[in-house]
Design a protein around this nucleic acid. Structure first.
Length: 409
RNA sequence: GCGGCCGUGGUGUAGCUGGUCUAACACAAUCCCCUGUCACGGGAUAGAUCGUGGGUUCAAAUCCCAUCGGCCGCG
């Protein structure tokens, strides 16, 4: 059978360190890694055209199974010729499995403060307070997702209707959507989940990985161009569970791996390093949902090849812009009359042509173009930040690069 | 000239058969947050003593009188 993707390591960081630069060949082109994946949940990078996404340097786009299944429906995407054709993005594509929505529509639903990163100092307090929902527990009733061992029952965030995802269903939908790289259906747990729950959830995710792989292989026999399935390592904030998960998922016949779930903010590097030491070196590793610049540095040097994160585009739409010296909130009063570019060292389209004062005006006036310019800038910043790390690995200057970053302590 | 309506934070309004108003809401303002998008989203803070003067009352943005300003109608 034709291989869906081809991963070639070009250079590894010296002295046994985990970071590496590689190329990842897909049916829609080659990705030079480490690379930041642009998030286009509903088959569009919000506020940007594919041409703009390409121009700012993004190589690959990630869409979401849950969202496209609900709207417009995976069959529409399939009939259009697949995700790449549907959204007019000619390059490589991925889809997430819907596993994250188990968390975002379940444990995290309606709780704006809760995300997959736990602040370490609050860890103990939150563990005491929260009674965590176990499968079948009534306390999940208010949420939009209910988990059982066979799968997840979601309610649509669009109209409240009920839908059922299982590993097999997720594979079917993802094959219909037709991205180059797809993910196993997993359970993304909350950072508040205690050890006992994580253990149960992990066993379930491993079982679902097995089922995803079987369903995927079956579906791939019917395809002209095969898809590549990535298995997802879980284990939350617990080192022993992370290692167990890396061993289990790593030994299965996946084309690559995702590292998912929740982390302690101060502990991402160690967690990821732990996992990547165990995962087979010759396959790509995608760190799911991580994208703050300071986290990316740690993830790259600990052996991750791909990243996706909504932060650059979401922050952009809300007025927070990345800059070399740290991020700025363009809505602050001091930028009303600031006629400098967002970041004077940035070469993006927005910085080459527009001022902070103009961005400030667009945001205050709630003009749509504000989101476009800000998204171009933030995505460019992060995509190129990761590209610089790739060059630094190839040149053997990674530590110099790391030392040169002013916002990174 | 007569009659009526209105005058509350930057803006627009609510409250006005008196006490629960140490005055509410929206927008604007100042600032913070956002990590596999429920997300052009979420949160915090500041800002009026209620046109002005007087009166009634234990108590008035709320009732009465006067006055100033605006609007409408009739002359």
């Amino acid at each position: 059978m034709v291989r869906a993707i081809e991963f070639k390591i070009e250079k590894k960081m010296p002295r046994g360190r985990l970071g590496r630069a590689a190329t990842l060949a897909t049916p829609h082109g080659i990705i030079e890694t480490p690379a930041f994946v642009a998030v286009g949940t509903k088959a569009t990078i919000k506020a940007l055209s594919p041409e703009q996404v390409k121009e700012l340097g993004a190589q690959v786009v990630l869409a979401n199974t849950y969202h496209l299944y609900l709207e417009p429906g995976e069959e529409v995407v399939k009939k259009s010729g697949g995700l790449s054709k549907f959204m007019n993005w000619p390059g490589p594509t991925m889809t997430d499995s819907g596993g994250f929505q188990v968390f975002s529509l379940g444990a995290a639903f309606g709780r704006k403060g809760l995300n997959k990163l736990a602040k370490t100092k609050e860890k103990n307090a939150s563990e005491e307070k929260v009674e965590y929902a176990v499968a079948g527990d009534d306390s999940t009733t208010r949420a939009f997702a209910k988990i059982d061992d066979d799968g997840v029952t979601f309610r649509s965030v669009i109209d409240g209707s009920e839908h059922r995802f299982t590993p097999e269903r997720s594979m079917e939908i993802q094959h219909a959507i037709g991205a180059d790289m797809i993910f196993a259906f997993d359970e993304c747990t909350s950072p508040e989940a205690p050890y006992e729950y994580q253990k149960v959830a992990l066993a379930r995710t491993h079982e679902w990985a097995k089922r995803s792989l079987i369903a995927h292989k079956e579906l791939n026999t019917k395809r002209l161009t095969p898809n590549a399935l990535f298995g997802i390592v879980q284990g939350g904030r617990f080192a022993d569970l992370r290692e167990e998960s890396a061993r289990t998922i790593g030994s299965m016949d996946f084309a690559g791996f995702g590292i998912g779930g929740s982390f302690d903010k101060d502990d991402i590097a160690a967690s990821v390093g732990l996992v990547n030491k165990i995962l087979p070196e010759e396959k790509p590793r995608h760190l799911l949902g991580i994208g703050a610049p300071e986290d990316l540095v740690l993830a790259v040097e600990n052996g991750c090849d791909l990243f996706d994160c909504v932060a650059p585009t979401r922050l952009a739409r809300n007025g927070t812009l990345y800059a070399e010296k740290g991020r700025i909130n363009i809505l602050n009063a001091k930028f009303k009359n600031d006629f400098n570019p967002i970041d004077s060292n940035c070469a993006c389209y927005a910085c080459r042509n527009y001022t902070r004062a103009y961005l400030s005006h667009l945001f205050r006036a709630k003009e749509m173009f504000a989101a476009t310019l800000a998204s171009i800038h933030n995505l460019y910043f992060v995509v190129n930040f990761v590209k610089k790390m790739r060059s630094a690995i190839l040149d053997g200057t990674f530590d110099d690069f790391k030392a040169s970053i002013s916002f990174y302590k």
